[in-house]
């Protein structure tokens, strides 16, 4: 580690504790923070067709939204957040379903979601129950699939696939 210090030039010109570019305008910083968050939220609204501020789906969106009471989602998705705005909380409480066959490619040019969700139903009441054997599928007894015991759902990963940004 000592090498780092020597080769990396600065034979330490003082303690690492220092302010580099002078005082920060706190109010300005707060304003820009709010602006940045709002922009993020607007972008998310466009992308998901959901107004996260008023907690309502947008008319124009390609997704069909279905409300799920917070008490019914796994603990992980409930808000235990302090200090975070209501928006985030509500974000957690809504669940996404898509209109079948009506999927449009995502608007955002760079973001291709891995595996566009064709079906993404989240019927939480059934999650705990073992699904009934599907008798209608034919007389022959089918091999049991793992998916017989839980619902298949594809996760929508909010992450670009190709490019890092």
């Amino acid at each position: 580690m000592a090498t780092h210090k020597r080769i990396l030039g600065t034979p330490r010109n003082g303690p690492a504790r220092r302010s580099l570019f002078g005082p920060v305008d706190r109010e300005q910083l707060q304003v820009e923070y709010q602006t940045a968050l709002r922009k993020d939220l607007e972008e998310a609204s466009r992308r998901w067709g959901f107004d996260f501020t008023s907690d309502k789906p947008l008319e124009s969106g390609g997704f069909q939204w279905e409300g799920v009471p917070a008490t019914e989602v796994p603990l992980l998705y409930r808000s235990c957040v302090f200090g975070l705005g209501q928006k985030r909380r509500r974000l957690m409480e809504a669940t996404l379903t898509t209109k079948r066959g009506r999927m449009e490619p995502p608007q955002s040019e760079k973001e291709n979601i891995p595996g566009t969700p064709e079906r993404c139903e989240l019927n939480l009441e059934n999650l705990e129950k073992t699904p009934e054997r599907r008798e209608s599928s034919g007389a022959k007894r089918k091999q049991t699939n793992l998916t017989d015991f839980y619902q298949t759902k594809r996760r929508v990963v909010w992450m670009p696939r190709k490019s890092g940004e």
Partner: peptide, 25 residues
């Protein structure tokens, strides 16, 4: 280390902004 030119609250706020811009990647 910034000689308290910023506060922890601001650090946590901007953490969210950075994460958003980097798409949590």
């Amino acid at each position: 280390y910034t000689d308290n030119s910023i506060a922890p609250r601001e650090l946590l706020d901007w953490e969210l902004v950075v994460l958003g811009k980097l798409k949590w990647n």
